[in-house]
């Protein structure tokens, strides 16, 4: 199994930005979005993240998979919500469900339970708002894996304030990935040569899980045994004795400062809007009501 990172050098504006600035942007926007339920504000954030997304210039081919995943998630969650919400949570807004659009009461024959399902204008708008929030955040973070260079995670988070050791263990992890992937395929071959057939895992769930041991155990134990040498090699080269220099240098360019400034404004703005102006709560446009003839 030859694994490959989704990351690729694309020389886009996004990738020219300093990784720290981009993380700050992503996190502040995420925290801002989740302040709002008003689709007008949500529309703004969705737009913002879409702009960011398209600046990343990802191809449909490489993102097809995650998109199907996201869409299924959205559908399932909204579906579930539409059926079983209305009690507490952030969905308290739905308690007054006056404008009923569609409704069924169905008595289950025999048992005698009544199932009461109803769709209201509020629920529809709420579902819309929800979808916008989920999409905004998904769209915001999908490019991470594709556009951040795995080999700069360490220095990035060091400069964002993590300790040397933790930051370096990130770099080290990315260093191990190809090696371990190779070991895994070796183990897979070795076990198949002993008649082990992953494709034909039989038995109940438990039995199937136990049957993963021949794959997982050798790879894990092998890696742990090998770790002793690596620990020695690092100790021998003074790892962790004093604050270390990181060869990769990160420098903020004016555009990075701009991005960070913008992020801060957005966050502070959102907090103020909610806390002081008390705007951005759930809101049902009259247009929609009229649309359904209320």
């Amino acid at each position: 199994m030859l694994i490959s990172w989704r990351y690729r050098e694309r020389n886009t504006l996004i990738q020219k930005l300093d990784p720290r600035a981009r993380w700050i942007f992503l996190l502040t926007v995420m925290f801002s979005v989740i302040q709002f339920w008003d689709i007008r504000f949500l529309a703004f954030f969705l737009g913002l993240s879409l702009v960011y997304y398209f600046l990343a210039r990802l191809t449909w081919k490489e993102t097809r998979r995650v998109w199907t995943f996201v869409l299924i998630l959205v559908v399932v969650i909204i579906g579930l919500n539409a059926l079983i919400t209305g009690r507490g949570g952030s969905t308290a807004v739905l308690r007054d469900t006056r404008h009923t659009v569609w409704e069924v009461r169905w008595v289950v024959p025999g048992v005698g339970w009544t199932i009461h399902l109803f769709i209201t204008v509020e629920k529809i708008v709420f579902a819309l708002a929800q979808m916008m929030r989920m999409l905004t955040i998904a769209v915001l973070f999908i490019p991470v894996a594709f556009t951040f260079n795995p080999n700069h995670y360490g220095v990035t988070f060091r400069r964002l304030g993590l300790p040397d050791k933790v930051a370096f263990s990130m770099d080290l992890a990315f260093r191990f990935v190809p090696t371990l992937a190779h070991d895994f395929s070796l183990t897979l071959d070795a076990q198949r040569a002993r008649g082990y057939e992953v494709e034909k895992l039989s038995g109940g769930l438990i039995a199937q899980i136990r049957k993963m041991a021949p794959l997982i155990v050798p790879v894990t134990i092998n890696a742990i045994v090998g770790a002793e040498d690596i620990v020695n090699a690092m100790d021998l080269r003074c790892f962790g004795l004093r604050p270390r220099t990181w060869l990769q240098e990160l420098r903020y360019a004016p555009r990075d400062d701009a991005l960070i400034g913008f992020s801060v404004v957005v966050l502070v703005g959102s907090l103020l809007a909610r806390a002081l102006l008390r705007i951005g709560d759930f809101w049902v446009p009259d247009a929609v009501l009229r649309l359904f003839g209320f």
């Binding site: 199994m1 694994i3 050791k165 933790v166 370096f168 263990s169 990130m170 770099d171 080290l172 992890a173 990315f174 260093r175 191990f176 990935v177 090696t179 371990l180 992937a181 895994f184 992953v198 494709e199 895992l201 769930l205 199937q208 993963m212 997982i216 790879v219 894990t220 890696a223 742990i224 770790a227 690596i230 620990v231 690092m234 100790d235 790892f239 962790g240």
Partner: peptide, 28 residues
């Protein structure tokens, strides 16, 4: 140092194994 190495190892392992068991056409 040991903790640094084991953390990195664990993370890489978890990542690779999740990916791999994802790739293997598992039934169920």
């Amino acid at each position: 140092t040991r903790e640094v190495v084991y953390s990195a190892l664990g993370a890489a392992l978890y990542g690779v194994l999740s990916f791999a068991t994802n790739m293997l056409a598992l039934p169920a």
